[in-house]
């Protein structure tokens, strides 16, 4: 029995191993610059915004659906923080959170009740928000009130993000909702016929994604001190890249592990940080990011994975006999 237990531990630890190896590699290449304590603190600081969005999108992708609007939801929540907090801090934060949740709920409505394909529904929301944003920020970029800058301290942000991540982990691993999300992802018809209220599950996971994007928008606002049309826009593609780096199975479903968004966003930021410390020019960096991402996607593809693992079996002469007994 230990053979399969070892394999299960292996699959659980693999993404973390990838991350450690990546950090080790950059440590060698940057002659130790990348593994200074200050750099680690900085790295974690950079990952905060991405890891929250990734966790939100992770919930949605476990259902086998997509969320293209996460970047723009971050943008509009960042704008709400900047604009409304000038009136009153507390009201500003609440409006930002409500806007995020509202946008998530809208996504949930169009995908589950109107039954639109998730790619198109979230794309429409992205279009609507970008259109609104240019009109909202008619004048100069909206500046975040100075009182909020105190919160941009590493030791304040870390607990906030940790609490949210632990909450999300608990929700995903230890509650009915999390279990149902994985089930809907692997076979939606069977989920409906097992009594799961699939419409409710989709609505909740999109609303949660919206809420997490709102918090990420808040962090972007206090970190950059300004809200503009460009803030947070590349979050959509970065979250997709991060999730794939974290080893998220392409179609979502039961094999989705919660380590994917955390490890994935860390790997993404380590990659960015490491490459810029090495002073690699921006175009080459985009090239490397694209090459690695494509390489990971090819490796994660079903038929290639089986080919690779059977190849490894031949090399290492795996003695695993047909395990399933008829």
């Amino acid at each position: 029995m230990d053979k399969t237990k070892l394999k299960r531990i292996g699959t659980a630890l693999a993404p973390f191993l990838g991350l450690i190896l990546l950090i080790a590699l950059f440590a060698i290449l940057t002659d130790g610059a990348s593994i200074q304590l200050s750099n680690f603190k900085l790295l974690i600081n950079q990952t905060f915004t991405l890891v929250l969005v990734c966790t939100g999108v992770f919930g949605v992708m476990t259902l086998g659906m997509m969320d293209l609007s996460c970047g723009t939801v971050v943008c509009i929540c960042c704008f709400m923080v900047a604009k409304v907090c000038q009136v009153n801090i507390f009201v500003g934060l609440v409006t930002a959170l409500l806007t995020g949740i509202g946008m998530g709920a809208f996504n949930g409505f169009t995908t589950s009740i109107l039954k639109m394909p998730s790619f198109l529904a979230t794309l429409c929301l992205q279009y609507i928000i970008t259109g609104l944003m240019t009109q909202l920020i008619a004048s100069a970029a909206v500046t975040v009130p100075a009182e909020l800058y105190f919160f941009d301290e590493f030791w304040y942000k870390l607990p906030l993000v940790l609490v949210l991540l632990i909450g999300a982990y608990f929700l995903f691993r230890h509650t009915k909702l999390g279990h149902y999300m994985r089930m809907v992802g692997s076979n939606e018809t069977a989920a409906i016929f097992s009594g799961i209220n699939v419409r409710k599950i989709k609505m909740i996971s999109y609303t949660m994604a919206g809420g997490l994007c709102a918090v990420s928008g808040f962090l972007v606002a206090i970190r950059s001190g300004t809200a503009a049309v460009t803030s947070g826009t590349d979050m959509m593609f970065n979250s997709m890249i991060a999730l794939t780096l974290g080893g998220f199975p392409n179609g979502g479903g039961a094999k989705a592990r919660f380590s994917a968004p955390i490890v994935g966003s860390f790997m993404f930021c380590v990659l960015n940080n490491g490459l810029s410390i090495l002073g690699v020019s921006s175009t080459t960096q985009a090239f490397i990011k694209g090459a690695i991402f494509l390489f990971m996607v090819i490796l994660m593809a079903e038929n290639v994975k089986t080919a690779v693992s059977s190849g490894i079996k031949k090399i290492f002469g795996g003695k695993e006999k047909a395990s399933e007994i008829n």
């Binding site: 985009a286 494509l294 996607v297 593809a301 079903e302």
Partner: peptide, 25 residues
Amino acid sequence: LMIRLKAPPMIISVGLVLIYEALST
């Protein structure tokens, strides 16, 4: 790439676009 691989085309195209844009610059 998109026909032979069993991965969603949308994800593959994101990787390809990154490379093509770096090439264009």
